[in-house]
Nucleic acid binder design. Sequence first.
DNA 1: CATGAATGAGTGTTCATTCAT
DNA 2: TATGAATGAACACTCATTCAT
Lengths: 197, 197, 197, 197
Amino acid sequence: MPKIVDHHDRRRELAEAAWRVVLSNGIDGATTREIARESGFSAGVLSHYFEGKDDILQAALELSHRTILKRFDDILAGLEGLAALRVFLLDNLPVGQRQIDETNLEVSFWSRALVNGNLREIQRAESKRFGEILRSLVEQAQARGELDPDVDSREITELLGAMIDGLSVHALLYPDRYDARRLTKLMDAQLALWRVS
Amino acid sequence: MPKIVDHHDRRRELAEAAWRVVLSNGIDGATTREIARESGFSAGVLSHYFEGKDDILQAALELSHRTILKRFDDILAGLEGLAALRVFLLDNLPVGQRQIDETNLEVSFWSRALVNGNLREIQRAESKRFGEILRSLVEQAQARGELDPDVDSREITELLGAMIDGLSVHALLYPDRYDARRLTKLMDAQLALWRVS
Amino acid sequence: MPKIVDHHDRRRELAEAAWRVVLSNGIDGATTREIARESGFSAGVLSHYFEGKDDILQAALELSHRTILKRFDDILAGLEGLAALRVFLLDNLPVGQRQIDETNLEVSFWSRALVNGNLREIQRAESKRFGEILRSLVEQAQARGELDPDVDSREITELLGAMIDGLSVHALLYPDRYDARRLTKLMDAQLALWRVS
Amino acid sequence: MPKIVDHHDRRRELAEAAWRVVLSNGIDGATTREIARESGFSAGVLSHYFEGKDDILQAALELSHRTILKRFDDILAGLEGLAALRVFLLDNLPVGQRQIDETNLEVSFWSRALVNGNLREIQRAESKRFGEILRSLVEQAQARGELDPDVDSREITELLGAMIDGLSVHALLYPDRYDARRLTKLMDAQLALWRVS
DNA sequence: CATGAATGAGTGTTCATTCAT
DNA sequence: TATGAATGAACACTCATTCAT
């Protein structure tokens, strides 16, 4: 019997390598050779686990999404209402190295998603999942009277979602202008706008 | 007797071609050959006016920035306070084809700027100019009592700037979810949060 | 207690798979992976039974030759003279699916045989066996007075042999121009040229 | 003004290199790198003149066809009837190095034509042109009473065409069995079968 | 005996860049 | 100044082959 490798595990391992390469080299510098090198395998191995380069990059993006989604449970455990919403929002800003990396990957894929339907669909699905969680948290906070219940929850959700991505890209491009404290302060200020006086 | 060519004009001409190619092919599909073809010149001509491909792309980005900045004067002519601020913000959302194209180019460059110091500097400078105009408009609106004067103008500016880019990328990636009307409504809703009651 | 496998049988099994792959994919598209897949075995098994890819292809060719030779006995059973010769010739033209496949394989190997001594030797040996049978049938027909006995039997043999391969390649490349009836008619016409008036 | 290269000339030059590489390495060993090396140019130059590898190989085949067709005029000049037919047939057998090379190329492409529609069409067209010339020569010889006028000229044409290709492939694969003299003798014997007694 | 993971050389192809004209 | 022929490194990808299990 040959060495048995779990196909799923190896795919993940290679997708993680792709993830790291996109972060360090940019998405344009993420060549299959470099991904293979980063993974510690030879170049040919990629073809056993992926259809091609696009497939690897998609897998890296989806891996990042899955990682982020999984973390939400831990983050939100024991929290409710506005407190949960705030933690959720702050965790989706580049306030720590982990979040910086995840956001970096996301932004790296935006330019490609503009001209690649597959990537756009992946991000659309993630955006939908993200929006649903966000909206549910917003409505919970409204129900508890912590946020103005008279404002359409969809409006709040879309504004907060846009704020997340807008602050994220600014923080990544101009890290000297937006450190974790500033991001937190800005997000709190935005939330405060919907507080009931 | 050599043909006299305005160096500056020709650079602009080529940068415009690069601009169009980035929009249609994506920034990864923007090859020098394609830019040359789009410009109507031969491939070799690029080397007379640009250091290399990066230089062409930088020029295209800077051209887009200059075009946008020039338009602000027209847009804001005759307007003051909140009205001016609102028009300024809406003009920076992808509400029309021109704005969609400009935003598309901007987003296309973000991924490269993450790993390219030159591009990052260009965008930082533009962001600074943009932020100064925005802040001045915000403060004007505050001074006129149209926006809450007790909120730090820098805070409002940064939130609005983030909102612009966040809504922009969402509208580009998911155009079915964010049409011009929705973007306008959302931006108005955000502005209303700072209205004095 | 190792599993007992008849080495010879397994080679044949794999050679048959190679035979099928050459037919469906062309000899250039006959990869070891595809041959393994077609055989139902894993890729690595080929190395246990063959020296390498060339060896597999050789085995497929030899298998085809053996299959063809074996069939001659059945075909010629009970026939003599010109009738036997005619049946032999027609059976070597692409008049049915079996013959089409066999001819297809043969033609597929010609290009490789031009630059591969091993394959050339295999085809030379087959050609020799084929020629000997053909000549014996020709001489039998001559002896029976069915074909002109004054013509050198080697000459008739070589012309008939060339005619077989020439018609074969034409029929494979231009199947609309040469169906089974036309091939039969042409071969009969050629034979008739040596009939004694 | 840059060095101006006649596109058609350079294509021909490269197609000739491809022609030589197919002869020396076989059609499977005809890599673009090797063709470029043989041409004396770098690998990248091929893309300026051909769509891809298939296009180069097609061009090599078509070049060979054009070369052969052009020679017919010289060969047949001043000849008529059976004499012309005989010279035409002999020139299409591998009796000299030039003909050997041309036939070699042709046979090399047969295996690919079996699975490649483009190549098959090219060879079909050539076969059609060849057949038309052949038939016209046959009919001329029949009209002059040099060949039996009672035999269908199409039948003679198809048999001679098949004989050409059959003898050709045999001569290429087993050159020790078929030298120029033998090929000539066999072709003459075949022609004699239709002579009027 | 059979597996299939892994290799790495080699493939066709693209592309930014150079430079003689 | 503008051309476009030519370069050659780099790219994604394929594939025959090896070998530990």
